[in-house]
Computed example of a mutant assay.
Amino acid sequence: MSSLLSPEVTIVAELTERCDRCGAAAKLVVTLTSGGELAFCGHHANRHSDDIVKVAERIVLEDGFEWAGK
């Protein structure tokens, strides 16, 4: 299921999570509309930006990160 509204986007000074795909420092954390959260490093966040926006209820970005989905 995809959200018809744009997800809420918040910018924070620093994230402490690790990428769920590769373990690198997370630059983006997404809260899914279906529940749960996923963390992405910069590479994976930009690679999957179109899909992230489709399933996101809330997106938290680290300050200074240039995200392709924004």
Rank of each mutant, 00 (worst) to 15 (best):
M1W: 06
M1G: 15
M1N: 09
S2Y: 07
S2H: 01
S3C: 10
S3L: 15
S3E: 13
L4Y: 04
L4K: 02
L5F: 08
S6Y: 08
S6D: 15
S6V: 00
S6A: 11
P7E: 09
P7D: 09
E8L: 11
E8H: 05
V9H: 05
V9T: 08
T10H: 14
T10I: 15
T10N: 14
I11R: 13
I11T: 15
I11K: 14
I11V: 15
I11W: 09
V12Y: 08
A13C: 03
E14C: 00
E14L: 04
L15E: 10
L15F: 04
T16R: 11
T16F: 07
R18F: 12
R18Q: 15
D20F: 00
D20E: 10
D20G: 15
R21L: 15
C22P: 00
C22R: 04
C22E: 01
G23A: 01
G23D: 00
G23K: 08
G23H: 09
A24F: 02
A24V: 09
A26H: 06
K27V: 02
L28H: 01
L28A: 10
V30E: 03
V30W: 00
T31Q: 14
L32A: 12
L32C: 14
T33K: 06
T33S: 07
S34K: 14
G35E: 09
G35Q: 14
G36P: 11
E37H: 13
L38D: 04
L38K: 08
A39P: 03
A39V: 02
F40S: 00
F40Q: 03
C41V: 05
C41S: 12
G42V: 13
G42S: 12
G42H: 10
A45D: 05
A45F: 07
N46A: 06
H48T: 01
H48K: 00
D50E: 15
D50Y: 08
I52G: 09
I52R: 02
I52S: 05
V53G: 09
V53Q: 09
V53R: 11
K54Q: 15
V55H: 02
A56T: 09
R58N: 12
R58M: 11
R58A: 14
I59H: 01
V60T: 13
L61D: 02
E62D: 08
G64R: 05
F65L: 10
F65D: 03
E66G: 02
W67K: 08
W67T: 02
A68W: 00
G69D: 02
G69E: 04
G69N: 03
K70C: 03
K70Q: 11
